[in-house]
Amino acid sequence: MLIRQGIQGRARGHLAITGPCGTVEHETFTCAHCSQVVMVPHRAAPDELGGRCHHCDAMVCPTCVQRDQGRCKPFEQRIEEYENRHRFLRSVG
């Protein structure tokens, strides 16, 4: 329940896998720093899911929790830097 409250309204998604043994459904969230979609298994321990960035107030994946060490670089900022770099490279030929 804590997990559900924690990711409520925060980059949530829904994954449904319908197979021969029925349908399995999972909540997902999208990491605010790298855009990876993280599946939230049933009864998962909160510390296995990653954490929340207190700067951008969004969920981040376990990899980004370890890599960023409290620093915040939202994915949109990464994309803007990437786009700017490519615009610059195109402008100089």
Binding site: R10, R12, L15, I17, T30, V37
Partner: peptide, 25 residues
């Protein structure tokens, strides 16, 4: 994903911050 060949996988973001951005490049 790992899934049975008979399966159907459906994913949907129901929060705008859950959507996956593609750079304008």
């Amino acid at each position: 994903w790992f899934f049975n060949p008979r399966s159907v996988i459906q994913w949907a973001a129901y929060d705008p911050r859950g959507e996956l951005l593609i750079p304008a490049t």
